[in-house]
């Protein structure tokens, strides 16, 4: 039992590290978008496109990192489009997001048919647990550079939003459109750029799925990670550093079901698999308050 406990804990930590990275990238992406005053539900679409294109480019060029770059670029095309078109009067950003999920999924599945079979070069990993010789521990702490990159990005965004000029401009666009206009900024342009930056990240998140973990392109690859990003950002109260914590929590909760069964508890695995959603719901219920309005960007209609 005692050994089981440690094994489960280790599996959850390992799972959190492995599963969290796409969540981290997508939620940071959504965070940038929402900070500028827009909501983009279409991250799921750019993520799946990113996964497919990343895998394809890695296959044809032989370089997984080029795949990551290509995934980011294709993702940002989606964001650019979303940002541009939602700047027009009368275009609903949530509806457009859902439409882009469909378009992204369709295109990715269509062009990805021939990529299901071949094996592309994947990203390497290394273990953080140099101090241990226990294989389970070294395995659990195997990480990929994208994970590190994600953490750095979270820190950079945290300070960036607070102190940099660019961060302030984005926040002004998100908090008060009129103030932004009065200061002479093109609010639409800011939002479009933020949106493109955001989906650049979700494209990379998708490529992580196809090029590292689980590490192959197929049509079941993304199971709503992109949609959940919107929930994650609320969960994280629009704070990049907390996006990281939220992603780890989400990853860990996702690993709970398999880890428990691996140790021999298999009752109610559907409910265990739903823990991330139940957890988020509880946190949203407890943390929402009608009076509190200072956290969410004010221009966000949410």
């Amino acid at each position: 039992m005692d050994q089981n406990f440690w094994l489960i804990l280790l599996a959850i930590i390992g799972g959190a590290i492995r599963v969290s990275t796409p969540f981290l990238f997508v939620s940071l992406g959504e965070c940038i978008t929402e900070k500028s005053g827009r909501i983009n539900l279409g991250h799921e679409g750019s993520m799946i496109m990113g996964a497919m294109v990343g895998y394809g480019v890695s296959l044809f060029t032989g370089s997984a990192w080029l795949g990551i770059l290509a995934a980011g670029c294709i993702g940002s095309l989606f964001g650019l489009f979303h940002g541009w078109i939602c700047g027009k009067k009368g275009v609903n950003d949530i509806a457009m997001g859902i439409a882009l999920i469909m378009l992204g999924t369709g295109l990715a599945f269509f062009f990805g048919k021939s990529l299901i079979k071949p094996t592309a070069p994947r990203l390497d990993d290394f273990s953080l647990a140099w101090w241990s010789s226990v294989p389970q521990i070294t395995q659990a702490f195997r990480i990929n550079w994208l994970f590190i990159l994600g953490i750095i990005l979270a820190v950079v965004l945290h300070y960036g939003f607070k102190y940099s000029r660019w961060g302030m401009i984005v926040r002004v666009a998100g908090e008060n459109e009129e103030a932004g206009l009065a200061l002479g900024y093109n609010v639409n342009k800011i939002r479009t750029i933020s949106s493109a930056l955001g989906t650049f990240l979700s494209g990379i998140g998708g490529a992580y799925l196809s090029l590292y973990y689980p590490g192959s392109w197929n049509e079941g690859l993304s199971s709503g990670q992109g949609l959940m990003a919107v929930a994650l950002v609320i969960f994280a109260r629009w704070k990049p550093m907390q996006c990281f914590v939220a992603s780890l929590l989400f990853g860990g909760a996702g690993a709970l079901g398999p880890a428990l069964q691996g140790a021999g508890f298999s009752y109610g695995y559907y409910l265990f698999n739903a823990t991330p959603y139940i957890l988020t719901l509880i946190i949203i219920i407890t943390s929402s308050s009608k009076k509190e309005s200072g956290v969410a960007p004010a221009e966000l209609e949410i």
Binding site: S216, G220, P258
Partner: peptide, 15 residues
């Protein structure tokens, strides 16, 4: 469910 399957494979390997 590719991610769940990979996760299951990993936690089995851990055991």
């Amino acid at each position: 469910l590719p991610v769940k399957e990979a996760e299951a494979a990993n936690s089995l390997a851990d055991q």
